[in-house]
Design a protein around this nucleic acid. Structure first.
Length: 683
DNA sequence: GCAAGGTC
């Protein structure tokens, strides 16, 4: 009898495959569940991967560049964080030992082709005729069944394309990162630096904004307000009510300022609908969790993963903004109804005659948008509870009817000048009731007046204002921007941003680009400009498509990239020391700045000038000392665990500098540098 | 010590 091993991309999918394809028995091996389907002539073992089991690594030793010799190696061999992969790896190896033929049933995209093909190739290396590819675009029973009935041959085109993309990313990313670090090394400094196809353009987008903000010079403008006892009305002027000329503003103000009365000359009412929101995809959830709770996109992603693993929500790494009826609206609503906190809302939704949801434009072949399963949550942390509640309320809201809102613009005339007061109110709440407390709309009512009414004026204000610099990117806004630019994927965008923080290229939220971040962009602009442009991703995509179609070969594309990089990196190497010298200056300045905490109180009390507290590192430990040492011996100890960061805050109790201690596994915290500060009495 | 991509 023939034994076939079918590989699913992840455990959940392996289970769905089994359910769709027939009667199965389960067989747990090394803690991993496999599914066995037996027919008269064939035994199919469905075994799960967990995403990539193999990773590209350098074959040779050392940190020289350029490096072009790479091979696929088991992922847990080189990454501690991938320990959990080991049992899946071992299980796959055990199952594949028994196999005569193989089916790659990973997701139908380049990554899925690579994940499955690597497992088959590196664990068995059979003839290609013994490998089949199962192509499905949703995980529904009918789609899976159909895909299984129409298995195709080994998908060499997609596999080659995928492997080529990985190789190019390695070539560009690793080599240019090493070049940057080596340039700094030549100047006797050591700093982890990195860039790549996604990191580069991401940093560039942020740096452009930073430059725009730093170069920004505000313009003065004036606005004039009419003050009524219950509201303010703004002078209608030009296209946006701003007066750019001071004399003109003064002239108008003088004309109206002593008027005691005004007439209502127009009331414009506009009724409009405020549509319910669309279902969450990962980016949407990250944005909303950021604006509602100030939780970072990366944290939201990991919370969502936990909720998913606890069966509380559907698969979170989805691009989809659609919730098809197939997910079983009624069933989910029924389960939510049995949770005390959602009983009323679930009832409200279920009362509707027909259930349908709003839909966003984005789709995802493998998964619907994020929705709650209805299972009862227990033991959730505070933040997990918040994100879960947000997902549930959003699920309710997408079934809701549009809210009815009314905007009113009232025009008040004084002399020849019109002033306008605006209000917006909600007439029918509808979906607002399903999404509270997350509805963010302004509610401002005006008194009920009619055209022709004469009102008393309390006075007029002439306000001198300044134009504002462009807004910085928040973490969630940059994740959105990356999605729009097609940079990275749903699963990687948040961690790309995180990496830029870890490299000290960016800091804060909203995001500031550090001088180091700007210097990296400058350096790349001068020497490897390709790595700053989103076009590199587009070019890669086009090349992968032509490899897939057989118009170009993987070898040809890789060789070309190698030649290009050889040239660019050769030139870079010739100027290594000079390039590094500039980077080193900013690295030194940035380090000093990050270690600087604030003025030394001891020095202030003793009347010494300019004492500055800073973090001092010696022999692997660190403490806080004063720049006036040895004249000032003021020191404070620092915690042994976690990374200490300076802040620009002062302790509200004693006025000494506040530090921020960043911890990996536990919660990060802020505290006063002084261990004896009264703010710590109840610690 | 370096990428980007998948996932528990």
């Amino acid at each position: 009898m023939e034994t076939t091993v079918m590989i699913g991309e992840k455990p959940k999918v392996a289970s769905k495959l089994a359910n769709a394809l027939g009667n199965y028995s389960t067989k747990t091996n090394r803690g991993v569940k496999n599914y066995v389907i037996e027919t008269d002539e064939r035994r199919i073992i469905i075994a799960p991967a967990v995403g990539h089991i193999f990773n590209l690594e350098q074959i040779s030793e050392g940190w020289d560049y350029p490096v072009f010799d790479v091979e696929w190696r088991p992922i847990f061999e080189t990454s501690d964080s991938s320990d959990y992969v080991k049992k899946y790896y071992n299980n796959l190896r055990d199952q594949i030992e028994k196999a005569d033929t193989y089916i790659n049933a990973c997701d139908f995209d380049l990554e899925g082709s690579v994940i499955g093909a690597n497992i088959i190739k590196h664990m068995a290396d059979p003839d290609e005729e013994r490998i089949e590819r199962m192509k499905f675009s949703t995980l529904t029973q009918s789609d899976l069944q159909e895909a299984f009935d129409n298995l195709e041959g080994f998908d060499k085109g997609m596999t080659d394309a995928g492997i080529t993309r990985h190789t190019l990313d390695f070539y560009y990313g690793v080599n240019v990162s090493r070049a940057l670090m080596q340039a700094v090394r030549e100047n006797n400094r050591y700093k982890t630096l990195s860039t790549g196809r996604v990191q580069g353009p991401t940093l560039k987008i942020l740096a452009d904004k930073e430059r725009e903000i730093r170069a920004f010079e505000p313009d003065d403008y004036w606005e004039i307000f009419l003050k009524h006892s219950e509201f303010d009305a703004k002078l209608s002027y030009g296209s946006d009510d701003r007066i750019w000329d001071e004399d003109e503003a003064n002239g108008i103000f003088l004309t109206v300022k002593d008027e005691g009365r005004t007439e209502v000359t127009d009331i414009d009412i506009n009724n409009y609908s405020h549509n319910p929101p669309i279902p969450f995809n990962l980016t949407g959830l990250q944005s909303e969790a950021s604006s509602q709770f100030n939780i970072s996109p990366k944290k939201t992603q990991s919370i969502a993963q936990t909720l998913y693993e606890n069966s509380l929500i559907s698969y979170p790494r989805t691009e989809s903004q659609k919730l098809p009826p197939k997910i079983g609206y009624k069933d989910i609503l029924g389960k939510l109804k049995s949770q005390d906190s959602y009983e009323d809302l679930a009832k409200k939704v279920m009362k509707k005659d027909s259930l349908s949801t709003t839909q966003g434009k984005k789709k995802d072949d493998a998964h619907p948008a994020i929705y709650p399963t209805g299972e009862h949550p227990s033991g959730l942390s505070k933040q997990e509870r918040k994100v879960y509640d947000l997902i549930v309320k959003r699920f309710f809201a997408v079934f809701g009817k549009a809210a009815k809102r009314r905007s009113l613009t009232m025009t008040l005339t004084v002399e020849d000048y019109d002033f306008q007061a605006k209000s917006k109110i909600t007439v029918e709440r509808n979906w607002f009731d399903l999404y509270d407390p997350y509805v963010k709309v302004s509610e401002a009512a005006l008194p009920e007046l009619e055209v022709g009414d004469i009102l008393d004026v309390e006075g007029f204000d002439l306000e001198d204002k300044e134009t504002q610099p462009p807004q910085r990117y928040s973490q969630s806004r940059i994740v959105n921007k990356l999605e729009k630019e097609n940079l990275g994927t749903k699963a990687t965008r948040a961690s790309t941003i995180d990496r830029l923080y870890n490299r000290n290229y960016i800091e804060g939220d909203p995001i500031n680009v550090t001088d180091l971040g700007l210097a990296i962009v400058d350096t790349l602009e001068d020497h490897i400009p390709d790595l700053l442009s989103p076009d590199l991703t587009r070019e890669f995509e086009e090349k992968m498509e032509s490899i897939r179609q057989g118009e170009e070969t993987s070898e040809g594309v890789i060789e070309k990239a190698r030649e290009d990089l050889d040239k660019m990196l050769g030139k870079f190497k010739d100027q290594e020391k000079e390039i590094g010298a500039e980077l080193v200056n900013t690295i030194d300045d940035e380090r000093k700045r990050r270690r600087k905490l604030g003025p030394c109180h001891e020095c202030e009390e003793q009347g010494r000038e300019d004492g500055m507290l800073r973090i001092i590192k010696s022999k692997g430990s660190s403490f806080v000392g004063c720049s006036n040492y040895p004249d000032c011996e003021n020191t404070y100890p620092l915690p042994n665990t976690g990374k200490v960061n300076s802040t620009d805050q002062e302790c509200s109790t004693c006025g000494k500098p506040v530090i921020y201690v960043e911890r990996k596994k536990k919660k990060s915290y802020s505290m006063c540098v002084d261990p004896d500060c009264p703010s710590k009495d109840d610690w």
